[in-house]
């Protein structure tokens, strides 16, 4: 049993494609991410990287291809289903619930894990108190891992930028994902903040045994922590493989720097 599970890749995408009107935004995209891997998805602007994330999370429905998460076919599933069954993400432009507290942001990710009915909540039946207590405990544990426990009652909007990034990762982890998607986590960060972010990402992988797929433009971050890379250009895979090798690929250099 253990053996076969280890052989299934965490994420396997076959021949994924989508077109908007006449525009083929992503075409025959393949990727295989192993459990516990830190995988980078890079490419010039407009190459279709975020579209791939939107396909993986069910925001867009693919016109061709299949998405398998830990062996389960997620193709065509709703975003809510995918959110509850193993894929969580962060956003390039942070999309926290800004007018909710830091702890409440994390609690939204617990939505399906601590069930009680609306009636139980209204009438304050025992299960309501039990589940709410568990949610607060679990939420505080998660916040502590990221050093955000003292800010639990702050409005998310009032956190400094770096902590908002951390909270977004924390909120994504609250859904207990199998695969974490990070969309340009280093966007808008200075080199010191990026260095700290790299530590955070490595820590998340260790601590939660997480499989991580990230989009990034910062080559320092990519070459520093990603084990494998896929390079997208004009919606198709340009190169794929070990980071060091891919970054030396002349096609990749051309795509980034021009002829």
């Amino acid at each position: 049993m253990e053996k076969t599970q280890e052989q299934t890749p965490m994420l396997k995408v076959e021949n994924l494609g989508i077109s908007f009107g006449g525009l083929q935004a992503v075409d025959s995209f393949n990727i295989e991410v192993q459990k516990g891997q830190l995988y980078g998805l890079i490419g010039p602007n407009g190459a279709g990287k975020t579209t791939v994330f939107n396909l993986l999370t069910g925001v867009y429905k693919p016109t061709t291809g299949r998405i398998l998460l830990d062996g389960e076919d997620l193709t065509g599933r709703s975003t809510t289903y995918i959110g509850r069954h193993g894929i969580a993400r962060t956003f390039q432009n942070i999309r926290l619930f800004k007018n909710m507290s830091v702890l409440d942001n994390v609690k939204v990710g617990f939505e399906h894990q601590y069930p009680y009915t609306v009636a139980e909540g209204l009438l304050r039946l025992p299960r309501y108190y039990r589940q709410e207590k568990k949610m607060v405990e679990h939420g505080m544990e998660l916040l502590e891992v990221f050093g955000l426990q003292d800010e639990a009652s702050y409005l998310a909007a009032n956190l400094p930028y770096g902590q908002q990034r951390k909270l977004e990762i924390c909120r994504a982890l609250a859904t207990r994902p199998k695969l974490l998607l990070l969309d340009e986590p280093a966007a808008g960060m200075n080199p010191n903040e990026t260095a700290e972010l790299m530590d955070t990402i490595l820590f998340v992988r260790e601590h939660f045994q997480m499989t991580i797929l990230l989009i990034e433009h910062d080559m320092h971050l990519v070459s520093g922590i990603c084990e494998q890379l896929t390079v997208l250009n004009f919606g198709t895979v340009l190169a794929q493989g070990e980071t060091a090798r891919v970054l030396k690929n002349p096609d990749v250099i051309t795509a980034y720097l021009g002829e």
Partner: peptide, 15 residues
């Protein structure tokens, strides 16, 4: 509250 702020993000959180 989450849906009111950001439907898309709420959905991705499993709401």
């Amino acid at each position: 509250l989450a849906v009111s702020e950001d439907k898309g993000a709420a959905q991705l959180m499993g709401v």
